[in-house]
Design a binder for these strands. Structure first.
Length: 283
DNA sequence: AAATTGCGCAACCGCATCATT
DNA sequence: GAATGATGCGGTTGCGCAATT
């Protein structure tokens, strides 16, 4: 047996609210407040509506200081950022935007912003592929895209993903695994197309170590370089290049040339490049 | 001009969580 | 601790309008 409905559907009005109903509800709430009980409110206010419907109407439409439409670029960024971070928790996202309701943000995302973001992604990907050598390559959906993000829509990705060198195992060696982290097919996998579309290379993989990235100048038999991409509020790329022939300079140059990362200078930040803008990652 | 399609938005539904008894 | 009721939330639906055919 299902749960009993919150109100008698046969005796409540449904569908769009009339201006008279709006006025009745608004004036009642302004005079008495909710009284802590939405279920009893419609009867007290003289409305033939379900309490839940009254609550929704008030929160999404009648409440003072509600804004409708006209989302700004700044709001777009906040929504995208938070959606990346926490997913579809619209009430939390809406709470960060003055005058916006969860319903409004949800509708805006589903009807406009999602498409806008996807179009921006597609455009950015197209730019990358069109600037490559002209050979046709299969789009790599795990490719990591880097700045600059499309000027019209910067998508700050807050999702924290830390990849260590072990995440770059070659598909041919390891095969897909449900529990394995997403292989970004960066530039260190065995038998993965390299360079990825639009990028130049090649660093080569140390075949013995299997998991490690090494520069073309490293001694592949002994070097054990690794790269960590930390994509969070303190976006940066880390690398280490240990062992004989380990080539820090190569990685510094590689990230600078291909992604616009600027190597940090000074003590305390060796082997680390800060990202000039936000990192944009497609999974 | 009429029919069709697509879009935006308000509202509804049902489940999850919280509060009270 | 269990049962019950109220509230909050996210997914979905359906209507009205505009654009397109």
């Amino acid at each position: 047996m299902g749960r009993a409905p919150c109100c008698d559907r046969a005796n409540v009005k449904r569908g769009p609210w009339s201006p008279e109903e709006d006025m009745t509800l608004k004036s009642y709430l302004e005079r008495h407040g909710t009284g802590g009980n939405w279920i009893a409110l419609p009867q007290k206010a003289g409305l033939k509506r379900c309490g839940k419907s009254c609550r929704l109407r008030w929160l999404n439409y009648l409440r003072p200081d509600i804004k409708h439409g006209g989302f700004t670029e700044e709001e777009d960024i906040i929504i995208c950022t938070l959606y990346n971070k926490i997913g579809s928790r619209w009430s939390v996202i809406a709470s960060q935007l003055r005058g916006r309701t969860d319903n409004d943000v949800k509708n805006y995302w589903n009807t406009k912003l999602k498409k806008k973001m996807m179009a921006a992604q597609a455009s950015h990907y197209k730019n990358i592929t069109s600037s490559s050598s002209g050979t046709t390559t299969t789009p790599n959906t795990n490719l990591i895209h880097h700045t600059p993000a499309p000027a019209s829509l910067i998508i700050p990705t807050i999702k924290t993903e830390i990849y260590t060198c072990d995440n770059f195992l070659a598909p041919s060696n390891e095969g897909p695994s449900a529990s394995a982290p997403v292989n970004p097919c960066f530039m260190f996998g065995h038998n993965t197309p390299f360079p990825p579309a639009g990028l130049v290379g090649p660093p080569v993989l140390n075949g013995n170590a299997g998991h490690y990235a090494v520069s073309p100048h490293d001694d592949a038999s002994t070097a054990s370089s690794s790269v960590t991409i930390e994509n969070s509020s303190n976006n940066y790329v880390n690398w280490s290049a240990n062992g004989p022939g380990g080539d820090d300079a190569f990685f510094a140059e590689f990230f600078n040339d291909n992604y616009g990362y600027q190597e940090k200078t000074g003590e305390g930040a060796p082997n680390q490049a800060t990202v000039a803008a936000n990192v944009w990652i497609t999974f």
